[in-house]
Design a protein around this nucleic acid. Structure first.
Lengths: 112, 112
DNA sequence: ACTTGACATAACACTTCGGTTATATAACAA
DNA sequence: TTGTTATATAACCGAAGTGTTATGTCAAGT
């Protein structure tokens, strides 16, 4: 699961999350993506490289432009990891519930 | 949404994800968490500090030990963000579907 | 009181990150 | 061909991250 490193660390930056949010609305070129940020074009270019490296976006070539789009599958792996964590947590809580129930039962007996 | 920075960046480290996975199985002390890693205790201590800072875990005091536990609510905020991204994506795809359907209809007319 | 065990903190080195400006490349437009 | 537009890459810089060892703190055991 080495890719999760790249994915989570790509998501850790607010600029990159904003870029993803923008791309969720549809394709956009580097310039279009750079526009809302007070940041040089090279900086945005590198953010895009990070996102691409993490498999979160992809780019096509269209003349001199490189429109970016979200790579929907990427979110899946992240989800799977979070799901597993959630599941383990839930099972653990259920087990704890069991333990607590047991403890209460025991206390009940002792109280009598 | 400043906290997302901390949460995602905390999750970007494989050691910390492993720690979370371990904690999903139940509480553990710093030493217990450190044991499986080839890493000094201070290093693990700092990972825990990062996780705590991100609100992903919490610690209690129990004598000289500091048992850690997962903070289940933390995952929610992450989920919410991913959900919003997914939703926007889906809507965008639906819109694209609409556009494509329109194009096909147009082509159909022209073909006649 | 002294030692030990569990942890935190400090000081340090090294690497990575995120920004900058300057420059290269490649397609389009005149 | 020459200029312009869209983007990438390089060189650089300061800040932040991740590890180390050494040391501090504080509760527990003897």
């Amino acid at each position: 699961m080495r890719d999760l490193d790249a994915a989570f660390s790509a998501l850790a930056d607010p600029t990159r999350r904003a870029i993803l949010a923008r791309l969720a609305l549809g394709e956009a070129t580097v310039m279009e993506l750079a526009e809302p940020f007070e940041m040089s074009q090279p900086a945005v270019s590198r953010h895009l490289k990070v996102l691409e490296g993490a498999g979160l976006i992809s780019r096509r070539v269209e003349g001199t432009k490189r429109p970016c789009r979200l790579e929907p599958n990427a979110i899946e792996e992240i989800d799977r990891w979070l799901d597993r964590l959630r599941d383990a947590l839930e099972k653990n809580f259920n087990r704890l519930d069991g333990v607590l129930a047991e403890l209460e039962a025991k206390e009940g007996k002792e109280a009598q």
